[in-house]
Design a protein around this nucleic acid. Structure first.
Lengths: 335, 335
DNA sequence: CTGAAAGCGCTAACAC
DNA sequence: GTGTTAGCGCTTTCAG
């Protein structure tokens, strides 16, 4: 009865003439069996195409779950693709499996995803951002598993946080531009749904400008997804109102590139007539004839650190609750 | 004993004064209970913060698994980000959870991932490409679950296939360029690890050119990742050997954009002196001052169709084994 | 409409 | 070094 791929511990036990407990021990690579037993068991398992049933294992042993959930705002974002990659690499190496989710920047969708994922009794979850529904927070507290909130740093995390301050990103750009002699700054953003983080960057930017004595002149926030076209038309609209601006900070690199395209078309010289600054450090920005001034976010690192913090907590190793990841304002040729 | 979030069916049964079987039926939304019973059970479950244990459910009922695995070559690829998005949207809507994996273009890594995932008894899996290790194929056959191979179409799939022919993409570009009067074509690629698909495009391209009587003049395939810089230097190298080329087909859009940058720097006029053609339809290509001639791949659609085919098979609905997705050669201003 | 019994495959705990 | 027992939470099956 050695039907390929349907064998369970008991089948192997019968064939090898030991108890299924011994088989279990061998297959999990523990100890408490002779070399000879081990070899026989492994050979049989191999021959019978044994596939462990982790459902059963995780089911009656809390610590056997190697499932980790991660929820990102968008799956099509270049930045979060790298975050995912960092998470996946680290977790795969450590023997975990990754369940994915996407909340489209909406806490409610995150909660819906969480309810599904938690019912699989994962070892832990990684969430993006720090706005969560009360229901999600309660669920997480009751579940009592490690939770890492990434990307948008919070100093009072549900459990742990790995990320950076969007507000500070904005502040840094504001200070930088004033130092470079800019005096009449504008902002072009896009608030697709509940993207609070872009908002935070703008607030930091604005605050820094106020402090320096050259407050934000005007801003244009479109109800659109923050892409190339929104950047193009956003800048057009903004400049129509305030042609006297000398620099514009954009919600992200895609939008900044859209802005650059607008300048090129209108014969606006960058950075002489107008400075252009983006955010995120998207790879495609390297495509431009002139390097975009932007804030580079170490995306893969964030994913990696989040995964490692989660696993450390799982293993009972000491972990700090809040891990600050440094972003880097990279002066290019446009700002 | 109503400790939040730790209740199981039996606890709810006790509180409501029915059997756990009835609770189970109510919570799964079946039938066979009175409205009054239903309301009481649902209220209790709600109050007690009941979280179903799908481990237990899936464990003793093969059909209860709503886990689906998907393995892509790279998590940081813009194209596959959209595929993932298509898969995730469709699957989430249908009540499934998605386990992710990345094989770095290497069948061996795919097999390692599969062994892990299969041990969770998923409802089905989606794989990228059609090269799989014998071990992976055997595992899949024994597991007896739906399998969808996406992206690179195969007419003899393990189970189902959703994708397109890379070879045909190359053929179409070759024919198009000859029609446009190009006579001395080159190719610039990058073979990072085992990327067989770029290879297939080049072969189709080459074959079409031969058939038209203007065979491929030269090619440069770098041992590098297929990005902007590889495109830049690849074109430089190729043109150093064959300055007489009148068009170059690139492995993908990123590389083509690198090639464009090289042309701009050297004062090579595009498309007058040299045609540039990419592949993939990356979004950032819209960033360019002139639209890139390229093949657009309906990435999200592929993901969606794959997910739907998988679920249809699961539900016993009729599905075709092979779904051809049409790509679109989009003439831009560079080819 | 409802309930009781059995068991999924595995591992923790303890015995030998 | 190895085996036995019990039970995880749920669903299937069958009996009312």
């Amino acid at each position: 009865m050695e039907r390929k791929g349907k064998a369970n511990l008991e089948d192997i036990a019968k064939v090898t003439g030991v108890s299924k407990m011994t088989v279990s021990r061998v297959l999990r690579g523990g100890q408490g069996f002779s070399d000879e037993t081990r070899d026989r068991v492994i050979a049989a398992a191999d021959r019978m195409g044994y596939v462990p049933n982790r459902l059963a294992a995780a089911f009656n042993s809390v610590q056997a779950s190697t499932l980790v959930g991660i929820c990102v705002p968008r799956l099509t974002s270049g930045l979060f693709g790298h975050v995912l990659d960092g998470v996946d690499r680290a977790l795969t190496r450590l023997g975990y499996q990754v369940m994915i989710g996407c909340n489209n920047h909406q806490p409610l969708e995150e909660e819906a995803w969480l309810r599904q994922v938690v019912s699989w009794r994962p070892a832990g979850v990684i969430l993006s951002g720090r706005s969560h529904t009360p229901g999600a927070v309660e669920l997480l507290h009751n579940a009592g598993m490690p939770v890492v909130e990434i990307w948008d740093l919070t100093t009072s995390p549900i459990d742990m946080s790995v990320g950076f301050s969007h507000y500070d990103c904005g502040v840094e750009v504001g200070q930088f531009l004033v130092r470079k002699g800019r005096r009449r700054a504008g902002y072009v953003g896009a608030s697709s749904r509940a993207d609070v983080m872009g908002q935070a960057r703008m607030e930091g930017f604005s605050a820094a400008l106020v402090l320096a004595g050259y407050p934000l002149v005007d801003r244009e926030v479109l109800l659109d997804s923050p892409g190339f076209y929104a950047g193009y038309y956003g800048l057009e609209t903004l400049l129509a109102r305030r042609p006297d601006l000398d620099v514009v900070y954009f919600h992200n690199d895609e939008m900044a590139i859209g802005g650059l395209a607008y300048c090129q078309q209108r014969g606006i010289r960058v950075p002489e007539d107008l400075g252009i600054v983006g955010w995120g450090g998207m790879e495609a920005a390297s495509v431009l004839p002139r390097r975009l001034t932007t804030t580079v976010v170490p995306t893969t690192l964030i994913g990696k650190q989040a995964a490692e913090a989660l696993v450390a907590r799982l293993k009972g190793e000491p972990v700090q609750d809040v891990t600050v990841i440094a972003t880097r304002l990279v002066p290019g040729e446009t700002g």
